[in-house]
Simulated scan of single mutants.
Amino acid sequence: MTRTTVVAAVAGLVMLAGCDSSTEPAAPPTSEDALTTPTEEPSEDTEVTSEPAETSEEATSEEPEAEAGDMTSDGAEAAVAEYFDMLTAVHLKEAEPADLDSLTTEDCSTCEVLRDVSDTGDGEQQYFRLINTEGLATGESAEVRASVEQLEDGQVVDLVITLIWGDNRWSIEEIFLP
């Protein structure tokens, strides 16, 4: 036998091994078999979770919340939010008026009026709710436009709040109507 004959014979046997003697076609897979593919079971070392792994982009995309000690527009907005939170705390008798004074300058006449009104509160309910803020800081001064809701009557009031930078934080300088 020649080498070509041997190769042809082996190839023929390999092809015939895949066939059976039946003349009937094979049954099609069931609908469930057609829709699923076998998967390898996880080993004991594999961690099974229902949450996707956090990517490095997701891990770094969260920005830290601004603080009143940041000399930025966001920091000025945070100082305004802190002021209204403290105003509420004084009104609810959860803080002292002096705590509120520490967030303002001595020249803020509106701040004095709001402090006095809050200090005479009954401690039963919140007086103001800060709705939104939009600030612009330029150097050591900032202006924040804010909307607050007076909870007693539901009236929304737009305010302009000026701030000044000093002692590594923003202080409320004045509050007025636009």
Score class of each variant (00 low, 15 high):
141 S>W: 12
87 L>N: 05
168 N>D: 11
20 D>G: 08
70 D>P: 09
158 D>H: 14
63 E>V: 15
14 V>N: 01
174 E>V: 13
57 E>P: 01
153 D>S: 10
44 E>C: 06
71 M>W: 08
55 T>D: 00
25 P>V: 12
80 V>D: 03
90 V>I: 04
151 L>Q: 05
36 T>Q: 05
178 P>R: 13
10 V>P: 03
68 A>D: 07
158 D>K: 15
94 E>Y: 02
134 E>H: 15
149 E>C: 00
134 E>I: 04
151 L>Y: 08
85 D>F: 01
36 T>D: 01
108 C>Q: 05
143 E>H: 08
63 E>I: 09
115 R>G: 03
49 T>W: 04
115 R>M: 04
150 Q>A: 15
30 T>Q: 01
36 T>E: 03
20 D>Y: 13
16 L>Y: 02
150 Q>F: 15
41 E>M: 09
16 L>V: 12
86 M>P: 05
58 E>M: 04
83 Y>G: 03
146 A>S: 14
59 A>K: 09
163 L>M: 06
113 V>N: 03
9 A>P: 07
168 N>G: 07
102 S>C: 07
60 T>D: 14
120 T>K: 07
166 G>W: 11
55 T>W: 07
140 E>F: 12
113 V>G: 04
91 H>E: 04
1 M>D: 15
162 T>R: 02
118 S>W: 10
77 E>G: 02
175 I>M: 00
109 S>W: 14
101 D>W: 14
74 D>I: 04
98 A>T: 08
146 A>Q: 11
32 E>A: 09
75 G>V: 02
41 E>I: 09
2 T>R: 04
56 S>F: 15
173 E>A: 08
30 T>P: 02
137 A>F: 01
172 I>Y: 00
95 A>E: 03
124 E>T: 02
62 E>I: 08
174 E>L: 06
65 E>D: 14
178 P>C: 00
137 A>E: 05
155 Q>C: 00
140 E>R: 13
2 T>L: 05
56 S>R: 13
171 S>G: 05
93 K>E: 05
17 A>T: 09
80 V>L: 01
72 T>F: 04
8 A>G: 14
57 E>R: 10
89 A>C: 02
163 L>S: 06
55 T>C: 06
39 T>H: 04
47 E>M: 06
164 I>M: 01
44 E>N: 12
160 V>R: 13
75 G>F: 07
170 W>Y: 06
140 E>T: 09
72 T>K: 05
50 S>C: 14
166 G>E: 10
98 A>E: 10
129 R>K: 15
167 D>P: 04
85 D>M: 00
110 T>F: 10
70 D>S: 07
107 D>A: 14
6 V>T: 10
118 S>V: 00
175 I>G: 00
28 P>N: 11
114 L>Y: 08
109 S>Q: 10
95 A>F: 10
163 L>N: 02
172 I>K: 01
6 V>K: 13
72 T>I: 03
51 E>H: 07
19 C>F: 12
27 A>T: 11
128 F>H: 08
6 V>H: 08
52 P>G: 03
23 T>H: 03
6 V>N: 09
26 A>F: 06
174 E>A: 12
112 E>H: 08
11 A>L: 15
60 T>H: 13
43 S>K: 10
132 N>W: 12
83 Y>P: 04
47 E>N: 11
99 D>P: 07
28 P>C: 05
9 A>F: 14
114 L>A: 01
156 V>A: 00
2 T>A: 05
134 E>Y: 15
73 S>C: 03
46 T>F: 11
115 R>T: 14
